[in-house]
């Protein structure tokens, strides 16, 4: 098990390095560079100044050399400076990262807690009225774009009912320590979490229902019934544990879409997370910020896949790691 995890971590590192190069290269292909931004705000600059600035920042070198420079800088622990915010990237990214982490984890947990019981319930009562209502709602959930849902939620709960804030991360100037602080943050999280969860709830319900229906037809479920076990034991101990195996994959894979969904959601709700930061930094040619955020997002997704693979080993004894 330990060697397996180690091997997978090394593989993950390889993928991260490869992807970071791809991202870096794509960034160099984008029109414009930081110096051009400086020029546009300073008409008196001469072409000699431009050339000097370019060589100072190393922008005149080929992409792979710039990449190597960037890597050596990163590996010495210096994440670079944000050109837009004029602060070190690490200082900028830390709180943003946590904000995104809260948002996506809450959305994921919420989706799982809502979707699995509904999925199991509908699988146990296929063809019931509840089943068809749920199936219609999940279809709605899957096909509803999250940014549109976000706007609808804002209109209903923030504008019309005035129950919740329309956007932001926390009340500015308020005392945000202790329980009051948590409650204040929670108020700002409800709508983003809702709009981010709906899509995953839809697909999780579908998968949970399908997987559970499939398992309920299996011979070992009949065996469990033949042993005289009660309905609840048959469903939860024998059927659900088996149904969980494919659901874990779906949840792990959906993590990347929750992350990318967070980008849109954060933008709509003006929520101070990594997603919005990535968007702003790409638009503002702030590539130090963009690169680090990219790498963190990529690592998160890869790490979650690794965790899912390890979880398999616990849920399904047929999978062993050697």
């Amino acid at each position: 098990m330990a060697t397996y995890i180690l091997r997978r971590l090394i593989q993950t590192l390889g993928v991260v390095i490869l992807l970071s190069y791809v991202c870096f290269y794509l960034m160099t292909l984008m029109p414009g560079d930081p110096v051009e931004l400086m020029i546009s705000s300073n008409p008196k600059i001469t072409s000699e100044d431009v050339a000097r600035l370019r060589s100072l920042y190393g922008l005149d070198q080929p992409a792979y050399k710039r990449y190597l420079n960037w890597v050596s800088q990163i590996s010495s622990g210096d994440l670079g400076h944000s050109r837009t915010y004029r602060v070190p990237v690490s200082e900028l990214l830390g709180p943003r990262l946590w904000n995104t982490f809260y948002l996506s984890m809450l959305a994921l947990t919420f989706s799982i807690l809502v979707a699995l019981p509904i999925g199991v319930y509908t699988a146990l009562n296929p063809g019931s009225r509840m089943d068809s209502i749920v199936s219609m709602l999940t279809f709605f959930g899957i096909s509803m774009p999250s940014f549109l849902l976000a706007l609808i939620l804002i209109i209903i709960f923030a504008v019309q009912l005035n129950w919740l804030p329309a956007g932001g991360t926390e009340t500015i100037g308020a005392d945000n320590t202790g329980l009051a602080g948590i409650l204040d943050r929670a108020k700002y999280l409800i709508l983003p979490v809702l709009s981010l969860s709906l899509q995953s709830i839809g697909s999780f319900v579908r998968y949970a229902r399908g997987s559970m229906l499939d398992v309920l037809r299996q011979d070992y479920v009949r065996t469990a019934k033949a042993k005289g076990l009660s309905y609840h034991v048959v469903i939860w101990k024998h059927a659900f544990r088996n149904a969980l195996i494919p659901i874990i994959t779906i949840i792990a894979l959906s993590l990347s879409s929750v992350f990318s969904g967070a980008l849109l959601t954060e933008t709509v709700f003006a929520y101070q997370g990594v997603g919005k930061l990535v968007y702003d930094s790409i638009m503002g040619n702030d590539f130090n910020v963009a690169m680090v955020s990219f790498i963190i997002s990529v690592s998160m997704v890869l790490l979650m896949n690794l965790i899912a693979d390890i979880l398999y080993g616990f849920v399904d004894p047929r999978i062993s790691y050697q």
Binding site: D219, Y220, T223, K225, K227, G228, R318
Partner: peptide, 24 residues
């Protein structure tokens, strides 16, 4: 349920699928 498994027991055709794969 008290009768099933205690007074009347049953063996099925497919030993490959009649046992739960995730329990010993």
């Amino acid at each position: 349920e008290d009768v099933r498994g205690a007074k009347i027991a049953m063996i099925f055709q497919e030993p490959m699928t009649a046992l739960n794969p995730v329990l010993t």
